[in-house]
């Protein structure tokens, strides 16, 4: 027969209290090196006590208390490596581009869907002019009918910095939603990609018919390449999630989701700062005629080329350079 419960608690409680105090210190970051050893010892003792309580005092409050205490200690002792500045630098230097290259199949599929959407929208409007009434927002049609660009008025109502921040946050939200909709089995992402493509295609076709294609290109030349690339990458992330949901492969579905979700979110997190930067370009450079068209187009091409050069070259390993590694996703 084990010791009676109150006697057991009275005997062991000092250790538990000490462990709790040390854990609080660890959490607030004031733990000293010497105390670390004590923490370890106390944790092991509490674990032994928990095993004892499981056997002799199952279902009592002492059991629950020890469970929780060991749970907290376990969480603070077996911490994953701190993901702070060095990890962040490493992420942008190597991990994000490498992830993108590994998942290029999904990004490619997303690009194909997006381009199909553009073609669909453009063809519909070119063949059947009244299709524009269906596919192009009324506000834009109104401007085009007057022969003006709807983007000309952006800067007359707000200063460029608030335009830039508004556009950047809006684009980030679209990116996040594109990724998160992967949880619908990829259908939501698919719809968003095609839908955005159809919109852009339809608007371009409408502008082309009204002879305003130059104005449209003038507006999107500077930010378009990078912004649309990022939309496509976010679409790829959403498709990854959808694929894990539909076809988890050899893992149980729950595990496959967790593994693929972790990979997919890297694409979204990696794109976020670039999207914020391109919002600045879209707010300051793209609207109005402060910069000539050739400068905007040149800037857009250079930014796009730099972005893709970074994605395709940064942190490339020897194995990747010589040939595709065996475990690359198709």
């Amino acid at each position: 027969m084990a010791t009676p419960l109150p006697a057991y608690v009275a005997q062991r409680r000092t250790d538990w209290d000490a462990l709790q105090a040390l854990l609080a210190k660890q959490r607030s970051g004031t733990l000293k090196l010497g105390e670390l050893r004590t923490l370890d010892t106390l944790y092991r003792r509490a674990s032994a006590d928990l095993a004892h309580a499981q056997t002799f005092y199952a279902g009592t409050d002492v059991h629950r208390f020890l469970n929780q205490l060991c749970g907290q200690a376990y969480a603070s002792i077996y911490q994953p490596p701190r993901e702070r500045w060095p990890a962040m630098r490493d992420f942008f230097r190597r991990e994000f581009p490498a992830t993108l290259r590994r998942e290029r199949g999904f990004v490619g599929a997303s690009a194909v869907l997006f381009i199909l959407g553009i073609l669909l929208g453009a063809l519909v409007v070119l063949w059947e002019p009244r299709g524009a009434e269906l596919l192009v927002p009324a506000g834009v049609r109104h401007y085009v009918a007057q022969g003006r660009m709807w983007t000309d008025d952006i800067l007359s109502v707000a200063p460029p910095n608030s335009v830039a921040s508004g556009i950047a946050t809006n684009n980030l939200t679209v990116t996040i939603v594109t990724f998160a909709l992967g949880l619908t089995g990829g259908l939501g992402t698919l719809f968003l990609l095609v839908n955005n493509g159809v919109h852009i295609g339809a608007i371009s076709a409408l502008c082309a018919r009204e002879g305003m294609l130059g104005g449209l290109l003038d507006f999107i030349a500077a930010h378009g390449p990078v912004e649309l690339s990022i939309l496509v990458i976010a679409g790829g992330a959403g498709l990854m999630v959808g694929q894990a949901l539909i076809d988890p492969g050899e893992l149980p579905r729950g595990q496959a989701l967790a593994v693929r979700g972790r990979e997919a979110v890297k694409l979204v997190l990696g794109c976020a700062p670039f999207l914020a930067l391109i919002g600045v370009v879209e707010g300051y450079v793209s609207p109005g005629d402060m910069f000539p068209t050739w400068l905007k187009a040149g800037l857009g091409l250079v930014l796009g080329a730099l972005f893709w050069a970074y994605l395709l070259r940064a942190g490339r390993t020897e194995a990747e350079a010589t040939g595709a590694p065996a475990d690359s996703a198709s």
Binding site: G71, Y74, A75, S76, Y78, Q79, P80, E83, T173, I176, V177, F179, A180, L181, L183, T184, G188, G261, R262, A264, V265, K266, V268, L269
Partner: peptide, 19 residues
């Protein structure tokens, strides 16, 4: 598995608030 969350897990679960 009972261990604390990192940046990626937390980002995934909070970005999915959209859905």
């Amino acid at each position: 598995d009972g261990s604390p969350v990192g940046v990626y897990e937390s980002a995934v679960r909070n970005l999915c608030r959209a859905v």
